[in-house]
Design a protein around this nucleic acid. Sequence first.
DNA 1: ATAATTGCAAATCGTTTGCCCGCAT
DNA 2: ATGCGGGCAAACGATTTGCAATTAT
Lengths: 166, 166
Amino acid sequence: MPAFAEHRRSPPVLKQIRPGMEASRNAVRKLEGRCREAGVKMTDLRRVMLHGILAAGAGATAIGIWKTLGLMTDGHPPSLGSIQRNLNLLVARDILCRDVAPDRLWHYSIAPERRGRLAVTFVEAGTGRKIRCRMPEVAALLRRVAAEHGLAVQAAAITVTSGTGR
Amino acid sequence: MPAFAEHRRSPPVLKQIRPGMEASRNAVRKLEGRCREAGVKMTDLRRVMLHGILAAGAGATAIGIWKTLGLMTDGHPPSLGSIQRNLNLLVARDILCRDVAPDRLWHYSIAPERRGRLAVTFVEAGTGRKIRCRMPEVAALLRRVAAEHGLAVQAAAITVTSGTGR
DNA sequence: ATAATTGCAAATCGTTTGCCCGCAT
DNA sequence: ATGCGGGCAAACGATTTGCAATTAT
């Protein structure tokens, strides 16, 4: 048995981080929502990462976030590798954005929220009549599957026929 | 004796590179002048690097320049480490400029030439009378020593007294 | 049972640095 | 004799990736 047994996948400390947690609770909740919309399942690690990202501030580096989490978790931050992996995921899913500074490191920030609703339009086959609807569920799903292919939906036109479909 | 003896400091091949060398001869000459002005002694390696930098084109990476030199020297490019070192030198002396692209690599280009002559002004102590002169030698020296400290001279005012100085 | 997620450690890759040798001053 | 310039290889640091163990579905 190794000197430091007691290995768990997510040490309990990740479930309750202390300093300044209250301050960003709302922001984290909002980000959790965006994650869900983008098809990113929420896990203990990811939730704690969201806290760390907010606490570290806009433009923080991966290691900066990692160190911040080190403070917030009494010296038991998540693995740096896992952080990097999830940062990449969040960037791919448009939750975060990142760019290079003159120091040649990635700098992460919360991506500006997708502005404007997605216009989903029904186009009646034959007549060509257009029916625009507000369908947040459909929009979210389209965005998610598009994001999984690294794409961003701009608009959607669904061709339909009246009646029960043949 | 190692399998590949015949080591020299600068393989003779560096002294005569072939493809497209004519094209950039003038440009290289100009750059050599800027190097001299900046206090960068010209060496075989540096001269061949200037050819490579020009051949590789603006925005090339260090490794791109190195590979380009590999082609220009029949597979015997200068050491990559030396190239990096001299690129740093040329950047510090304002011959080259570099910035980071989204790929997080340095991209090198010829720095825009220092426009406008440096205004060196003599200010007569006591009277405050100003005498502006064109003194390219002084300007070059000032720029060089400033560059050695990572600075760029904008103007120079030399306080003087008339006569033989006391 | 199968797929997803994490920690850990090794691999990557451009860049930097230390050391030694050769040539010039 | 001194010192600068260059080759070479090791060091570095952020990021990526492979693997095995654990958890969720």
